[in-house]
């Protein structure tokens, strides 16, 4: 390698940048983006021009209170529903045919009917049995619309979450359980240390979707006199006929859902980073 001659290569210009032609998809796409921009600007302008400080300062605090109720409602129903969903998931996979059928009926009922109807049944149905509930000492609970809604949401999300956990647990290969058993692990240890952590990773995505569905579904609570975010918005609209309150509510709900979705994506990426090859 001692007599290597050095070759001098003349520097070449980089190839010219490809010219992006104005194809039909590009024209349509640009036009549609333009439509979105016009709509966005129009919306911002109408919010600004029709801004009524009286309405704003009177009803924004009410909507903030409503937002807190919405968050309370969603968080408590997701958590309580999650706690009930694990036994329900086991009931769905039970060896006893009777238990399995009961759990299936429960899940099918709550997933097959509108949550709005379930809520009406709970709220107005309870009102029909004031005397009986009073004698049972339960009336204080059903008297409050918030509690009726919470109970409906918990029962509803239990059904959905049970289905999520069932699918997740079943997705763990049987060999894992057998391997744990052959190593002498007890059943409880096998479940909590081997099956459950892996199942939860599978359940992560559908669980995130369920939370988002719950945030959106929680708006129906406003139809039985609960002043959640939607309820406060409807109250403001019925008093002021200022359509902008609906736009504010839309922005708040949208921020919540989109924020939740992005957080969940990040969480999922972080929790599954050991699985990425």
């Amino acid at each position: 390698m001692s007599d290597t001659t050095v070759q001098i290569v003349e520097a070449r210009n980089p190839p010219p940048e490809a010219i992006r032609k104005w194809t039909l998809p590009r024209i349509v796409g640009t036009a549609l983006c333009g439509v979105w921009i016009v709509l966005g600007v129009g919306l911002a302008w109408s919010l600004y021009s029709a801004f009524d400080p009286d309405v704003f300062f009177k009803y924004i605090p009410k909507m903030a209170e409503g937002l807190i109720i919405t968050i309370k409602l969603v968080v408590s129903s997701i958590v309580l529903g999650g706690l009930l969903a694990i036994p329900m998931a086991f009931a769905r996979m039970s060896k006893s045919e009777f238990v399995r059928a009961c759990a299936f009926g429960y899940v099918y009922f709550f997933r097959g009917t509108p949550i709005l109807g379930q809520m009406f049944l709970m709220y107005y149905g309870a009102g029909q049995f004031v005397d009986q509930l009073q004698s049972l000492g339960l009336w204080w609970f059903f008297k409050d619309a918030y509690n009726c809604v919470l109970l409906t949401f918990v029962l509803n999300t239990t059904a959905y979450q049970a289905e999520i956990y069932k699918t997740a647990i079943e997705s763990i290969p049987r060999g894992q359980r057998e391997a744990a058993e052959s190593m002498g692990l007890k059943k409880g240890v096998t479940f909590w240390k081997v099956i459950f952590p892996q199942a939860m990773i599978t359940a992560l995505r559908p669980l995130g979707n369920e939370i988002i569905l719950m945030v959106k579904a929680s708006a129906v609570a406003s139809l039985v006199t609960v002043f959640d975010l939607m309820g406060a918005t409807k109250l403001a609209f019925s008093r002021t006929f200022d359509f902008n309150v609906y736009i504010w509510a839309a922005i708040i709900y949208f921020t919540m859902v989109e924020g939740l979705r992005r957080t969940w994506d990040w969480l999922e990426k972080r929790l599954t980073r050991h699985l990425v090859r």
Binding site: V215, K216, A217, S218, A219, V220, S222, M230, T233, K234, F237, F243, Y246, I247, A249, A250, Y253, F254, V257, E258, R261
Partner: peptide
């Protein structure tokens, strides 16, 4: 990202 109920009311009143 919007609750269906809200979309409905916005479409209806808006």
């Amino acid at each position: 990202g919007l609750p269906e109920l809200l979309t409905l009311l916005i479409v209806y009143y808006g």
